[in-house]
Each structure stands twice: as C-alpha cells, then as structure tokens.
Write a protein that binds this DNA or RNA. Structure first.
Lengths: 221, 221
DNA sequence: AAGTCTCTTACAGAATTCCGTAAGGGATTG
DNA sequence: CAATCCCTTACGGAATTCTGTAAGAGACTT
C-alpha cells in the first residue's frame, strides 16, 4: 500500500474525515493533509527534492478563497503543476463536481488516476479508489457516466468572449461595437450572430436566454 | 454540555469528521449520526416518545438523491418537521450555502440557533457554535453578513413559474399560452411582461438573458 | 364615498433577435 | 488550377423583446 500520501482539501470536516479513514482503513504511514493548493504543492516539491517523493495525492477541485494569497487557486491548477513536476505521481480527485465533461477533461488532459464523488459513500469509494490506483488501475465513481458526455463541443475563446458579454446583458450590436472598439476580431454583428446560432444547434438551445442558462447550469461559464 | 446530539449529514467524509470532532473536542456522550433526513427525524421522534429527547440537532441543507425513497428531502424540511414536533430542540445548520437571504430565512422562519459554513475552519466554528448555542445564544459564521442582504427581494411563486419557462427557452407568448392551457392565473402576456420588467429593476438586469444568468449564478433558480 | 394603491390586462411602437440568402477571401485537396 | 470547405461579413424580413400609456377591478384608508 502507499506509504506517503498528500491530501489537499479545504473543508475542515471533510479533511478530518478523510484523514481518519486513511489511517484506520488503509494504515497509511505518512499522510500530509493540507487546506491550500500552494501548501500541498510545496510538500510535493520538498519531498521530491529530498528524494523521498509522495506516491499519491488526493485533492478537491474547488478551494474557497480567503485572506491568504494564492498562486494555485483550484485543484485543476494544483494537478497541472504537480503533473509537470512529478509525472509518476498518482492522483485521485475527490470533489462534488458531477459534470462528466469536466471530469473527463481531467482524465484526458491531466491523466488523473481516479475520481471519487463526495457523497454518502464517499469514504467507501475513496478506499476502493486507492486500492485500484495502487494496482495501476483507474477508478471512477460508479454513479458517473463518463462516456455519454463526449459528444459535447467545447467553447473556444471567441465563443466565451461573446457569451460573457451577453451574460452581462449587452445586445449583439453592443457586443460588436465593443469588440470593434477594443480591436478584437472578428467583430461584425453578423459573425457574432452566426456564432450564437451555431451554439444553439450544438447545445440544443432555443434562444439566447436558454443557451446562457444551460451553460451556466453546466458550469461552463 | 449537550449529552444527546443527532447529526444529519449525507457526505460520508464530513459526517465522519464531525463525529470525530464532537467526540474529541466536546465529549458528547451520545451522538447519533445519520445520512438521511428521514432517519434523523425518526431518531428524534423515538427519543421524544421514550422521554429521552435529543437536545441538539446538527444538519446539512442539501441531501443528495439516491435509490432510497425519501419523505424529507432537504435540511429545510427536516428542520420544519423537527421544530413542529419538538419546539425546544436546538438546531445548528452546517452547510455550503452562503447566500445570506437563504440563511436569514432559516433563522426567521424556523428559529434555528446557529449557522456554520462548511469550509477551512468549519470544525473550529462548529465547536464554537455548539458552545454558544448551549448557552442559549445564537451563532453565525463570521464570514457571513446577514444584515446587508435584507433589501433583496424574494421571488414568489409566479415569478419562479415564469422564470422556469423562460430558462427552458419559451417566449413570453408561449409562456402565456401554456399558463392559459393549464388554467394557471394570471396568464396574460402583458402581465408576464410586466413581472419580468419588475424583476429587471429589482435585480438590476438589462434583459431576460442577463436576468436569468444572474439568478442562475446566485443559485436562485 | 372618495381617494389611493396595486394587480391584471390590452395595445402600440421602437429596438432587438432569429434565421435565411448571398458574396468574398483564405486554406485545403485532388 | 479548380473545386470545396470554412470563416467573415452584409442585408432583409418575420418574430420577439422591451417600454411606454391606459383602463378596469379589488383592497385599503380616511
């Protein structure tokens, strides 16, 4: 079983519960639990420098902002930084996120090894996930259906820029004017119109209101 | 200190962390931790019938749906039922909710005794809250500013019904037609129009898209 | 009873959205 | 090189949104 594990989880209750589980159910020898991404990353770095690297990182995705300055502000950033530094590190994400698109991206882009949903059986699943990952397999919470979300199209930079302004209540003409004034291109009202129409198709939205609402609910914007 | 405490929290990690804290920091003699509202309510009922009522309930607000049938589906419903049955019960809510309006409503409508945000200092705060509530005072997480949110207007049933349909992409005319077909009143396009315009003022929105986006982001719909 | 307030409804006009057609330019391909 | 595809842009028309004005009905006050 893993000997050195680092945990990044900002909820004190959750953090404590995980720590207890790891001690009692898995007899992890060295568990470092942190409440900030930066601190967890520092632990990884120092351990690597001392030639005693961590074997597994368990991390949340969302970290609440508080008075402390942060460089890494999300689990995603922490994962990216950790991967770059220590490619062999095993990573399990433990979060409330249940959007298959987001989770799929973590597996694809950052090669995470496991994903566990917070929930009624979160600790049972976490223990299973750790066992699986230890044996070089991946683990995904059974309630998630990752394969079904692949057909969805991602938003590019231009899409996001338009959507942001629409969300703020600008009309298409106003968006066009703003882009022109800021020398952003493309910027014609017509092109903006076309882009939005394409998004209607892609997200099966009936109008702008419906589109923005759907995307907001899916956490895409 | 409290002797009999019931805990309703569906996240296994949180649940475990809280239980550990209550044992170690407060030496609670009898802690009943439950993962479903209905189970927690049954505990309260049985204890009351046996003339050994619980003194304190700690509950979350959101409970994930799963295969188990539920009567009480949220912390709010649990609190309401518990209050009706046992008016003297002390209640502390421990949740991610950080919308002052929602939290204020809990204090006003259900006379909860404390509110603790899940977060980095959740367990420290929870211990403080329990002390305060034990001495018949109320406790609110310091990061919340409950007074500043009073000027915001709540959405009534009619507002919500309209907004729901708009979010689904219906036009105002279609909403009007739907309400007429379902014999819901008021239902004229004009009245629906007026309502939405009023919401523009109240939420400082510029158009329907902006309004729905804002409300979605605030978690109101 | 008269005045005031709010809610519902109708109507109308200017602005905006939505969707189609069309033209030109750049990249790719056979 | 021609054909094709995709992106950008322009334009027009029907539908919808947004914002006024106005009238009637019910509740409340004085």
């Amino acid at each position: 079983m893993f000997k050195k594990v680092v945990l990044a989880e900002d909820f004190q209750g959750e953090n404590q519960g995980i720590a207890e589980t790891l001690h009692e159910k898995l007899a992890i020898e060295e568990l470092q639990n942190e409440f900030y991404c930066d601190k967890a990353f520092t632990r990884l770095k120092v351990a690597l420098k001392n030639n005693e690297p961590f074997e597994l990182m368990i991390t949340d995705l969302f970290f609440e902002k508080d008075h402390v300055d942060r460089k890494l502000t999300s689990g995603r950033e922490l994962i990216k930084a950790a991967r770059a530094q220590q490619p062999g590190l095993k990573i399990i994400v433990h979060s409330m996120e249940n959007n298959p698109i987001q989770i799929n991206a973590l597996f694809k882009e950052h090669k995470i090894n496991g994903y566990v949903c917070k929930g009624r059986s979160g600790m049972v699943e976490l223990v299973n996930a750790i066992h699986e990952v230890f044996h070089n397999r991946t683990y995904v919470s059974p309630q998630l259906n990752l394969t079904s979300a692949n057909n969805s199209v991602e938003l590019d930079h231009f899409d996001r820029a338009i959507l942001k302004e629409l969300a703020n209540g600008l009309t298409k003409k106003e968006v066009s004017d703003k882009f022109k004034k800021e020398n952003r291109t493309p910027n014609s009202e017509s092109t903006i119109d076309k882009r939005i129409s394409r998004l209607y198709d892609e997200y099966e939205a009936k109008n702008t209101t419906n589109l923005l609402f759907k995307l907001a609910k899916e956490g895409k914007i």
